[in-house]
């Protein structure tokens, strides 16, 4: 047995088989915790403050000019009550996308931490899972803060609505995270992120029903909006928060988000495996 220097115990830890997906992620806990400790301060503004600024500017100040009956606001009694669920779902998407674009590129290209990690018993699958788990944690913390802060303003029709909406925002965020992860693991240059942000994120953010009912788009664009995953997330979050749940529509929303998540997860893992094998 080769033993390097003496002092600490000579115990040798060996893996004789693949790690389970769970252990693969747990072993990276210390790494991600350290990453979080050094980045949480700078992420406070983007993850907590700016969503609330949106609520203030769009919901309260701009919303003050909007006087529509609940029938035209998908059942919301005010524009603020209409826009908050939309913004919560949209920020889940944005947080998820931010955590799976530059961080993935960095781990592959700039600080190459994926390559360093791959020299251990961890596999590409484990690296993807851990980064996605961290993304889930980030989405969960921003969504939770959002929902808790908005609760006293009377925008939720029931207490259980936002409680059920919370996992929906996680599902919405992760349905995007897996696909942006796959995209980031595929592209060679960070210049390609412009595509995601300009052609994906911003149009989705503006036209997927966060700010206005998509019935205002006209029949063709409304049909297009209904295909986007964000609309499914926004719609389900809003139905729950406003206590206007259409059971069959809710099932479709969940089904679409889960399908997008499961397929995307697989694509993300495969893409990273291929990239790291090169």
């Amino acid at each position: 047995m080769a033993v390097v220097s003496t002092g600490a115990t000579d115990a040798v830890v060996r893996d004789d088989r693949r790690l389970s997906p769970w252990r693969g992620v747990v072993r990276q806990y210390d790494y991600w915790w350290t990453v979080y400790k050094r980045t949480w301060k700078s992420s406070i503004i983007t993850s907590f403050a700016s969503p609330l600024l949106y609520v203030l500017a769009m919901g309260v100040l701009l919303g003050g000019f909007v006087h529509s009956p609940p029938s035209r606001l998908e059942g919301a009694t005010s524009y603020l009550a209409f826009i908050v669920p939309g913004l919560v779902a949209a920020q889940a998407m944005q947080t998820a996308v931010l955590e799976t674009t530059y961080p993935v590129m960095g781990a592959l290209k700039w600080h190459k931490s994926f390559y360093a990690q791959l020299a251990s018993p961890l596999e590409a699958r484990d690296l993807a899972n851990a980064m996605l788990a961290f993304t889930l944690f980030r989405v969960a913390s921003t969504s939770a803060v959002y929902l808790v802060v908005m609760a006293p303003f009377g925008v939720f029709a029931s207490w259980w609505g936002p409680v059920l909406a919370f996992p929906v925002t996680l599902l919405t965020g992760m349905a995007f995270a897996v696909w942006t992860f796959a995209f980031s693991a595929f592209i060679r240059s960070e210049a390609s992120f412009g595509l995601i942000f300009r052609l994906g994120l911003i149009p989705l953010f503006l036209f997927s029903g966060s700010f206005f009912p998509i019935s205002n788009l006209g029949p063709v664009l409304e049909a297009v909006a209904k295909v986007t995953p964000l609309w499914h997330g926004v719609n389900l979050t809003r139905m729950l928060c406003l206590d206007h749940v259409d059971g069959s529509l809710a099932l479709v929303n969940v089904g679409v988000l889960v399908a997008v998540l499961v397929v995307g997860w697989r694509v993300a893992t495969r893409t990273l495996e291929r990239r790291l094998a090169q």
Binding site: G7, A8, T9, A11, V13, D15, R23, R27, Q28, Y29, D30, Y31, T34, R38, H111, K112, S113, Y115, A116, Q117, S120, P121, L122
Partner: peptide, 28 residues
Amino acid sequence: TLDNELNVFDNLYIYGRYFGIPKREVRE
């Protein structure tokens, strides 16, 4: 492929954890 933003010790510590080595043992 060191992590430039971590200190020297943490680079080793975090790496040891990938191998499933117990925390105390990795520190030593």
